[in-house]
Design a protein around this nucleic acid. Structure first.
Lengths: 208, 208
DNA sequence: TGTGTAAGTAAGTGACTACTTGCATTCTGG
DNA sequence: CCAGAATGCAAGTAGTCACTTACTTACACA
């Protein structure tokens, strides 16, 4: 169904620019190069179309993975952060619109929240592994640390266009800078540092 | 002008719930207990009304201040963070709506960005002072650190309602937890610790 | 008492919106 | 070559939206 996917893509694009109320069937049809009627025949209603477009988007969202066992925290976490911030930046318009619709269309927002929830779990698991493997010298709550890194990345991706002076330069290194700060906060030293595999919980590794 | 302020307040409330397109003059008039016509006579157009309501809001936003010279970083920063997160939480609906309108109504969004810009400058200045006074043991970029703390707070305020499991518990201590993490990231030790007033740049204060 | 001002009532205008109906056209698979 | 499905076109429906016009009411102040 080529036509169907074209309409879904056009709907997502129009929604990203104009939100739900601004996504008129006329605009979506024009953007898809399709007669307005085709939309109603294919999807029944504007709401059904946008719901399907939303699900289609979130399902096709590929997130970077973090290794089960950390071997180079700074490199691994930086790569993950960069892929995450890129993901958010590419979708910043649609995310902002979706967040604005929480009160009026909670189903759509719920569907969109699955991505950050998965990302948070992935990151949390990695941070716990870091602690268990003795990489960290500070006691920390994984959920708080994860929320902090993801929050910084999220705010950067959402707000940099509007307030460029507030965020660190250059934008391409922002994710790395947040990552380094977080690693310091939980007491992980720079660079890959192979340790004894013995799981010494919270080994005090007072620098080298 | 009592009537005028009532209408402005009602407009802000309706906008927070329904966004620009959803804020019909009918709805605003009903919310204000006023005839629809009065709105047009007072403000000329729906757009002018909402613009004025927006400015009215941002002007009346009082932000907590940070001391010029830090004396108890954890306490001072925690208080600031808590006041900031409370400010954002009280306005989360209207902020989400405003963010969703950036593409279509950039003037309104620009006006809203003044608050976080001021907050960021304030925080940055404090972090620089921390470094200059020798509270920190790590080299760090103030802007990055500020963006990280504010980002975490912002994301918490915007997203906790939708994804409560992602953010640290209890919500009342979240701001404090982010603050502690940030202080660790820049190498500030716990508790108030009076130092020589001599401005030793980046004094290595390897614990007590 | 008279006058100006802010507010209300009633009715309507033109544009847009989601969605429908009826019919013609094109394309596809057997 | 032909049935059936997908698509397009023209027209229309009922509703909403921002905004206007014309007129009335209430009240402050001099």
């Amino acid at each position: 169904m080529n036509r169907r996917d074209e309409i879904l893509a056009a709907a997502a694009e129009v929604f990203a620019q104009h939100g739900f109320r601004g996504s008129t069937t006329r605009r979506i049809a024009d953007a898809a190069g399709v007669n307005e009627i085709t939309i109603f025949r294919q999807f029944g209603s504007k709401e059904a179309l946008l719901r399907e477009a939303m699900q289609h988007m979130t399902e096709s969202a590929g997130l970077a993975e973090l290794p089960e066992i950390p071997s180079d925290p700074e490199r691994e976490l930086t790569e993950w952060s960069e892929s995450f911030i890129q993901h958010l930046r590419l979708r910043s318009s649609i995310i902002r619109k979706t967040m604005g619709e929480i009160e009026e269309r909670p189903e759509m927002s719920e569907c969109a929240s699955s991505v950050p929830i998965r990302a948070s779990n992935e990151l949390c698991k990695y941070l716990v592994a870091l602690g268990r493997q003795g990489w960290t010298s500070e006691k920390f709550e994984p959920k708080t640390a994860a929320a902090m890194l993801m929050g910084a990345i999220f705010a950067d991706a959402m707000g940099r266009d509007m307030m460029p002076d507030v965020y660190p330069q250059p934008r391409a290194k922002a994710a790395h800078m947040y990552t380094v700060l977080l690693l310091r906060a939980i007491g992980v030293q720079n660079g890959p540092r192979r340790m004894t595999n013995k799981q010494t919980k919270r080994t005090k590794q007072l620098s080298a």
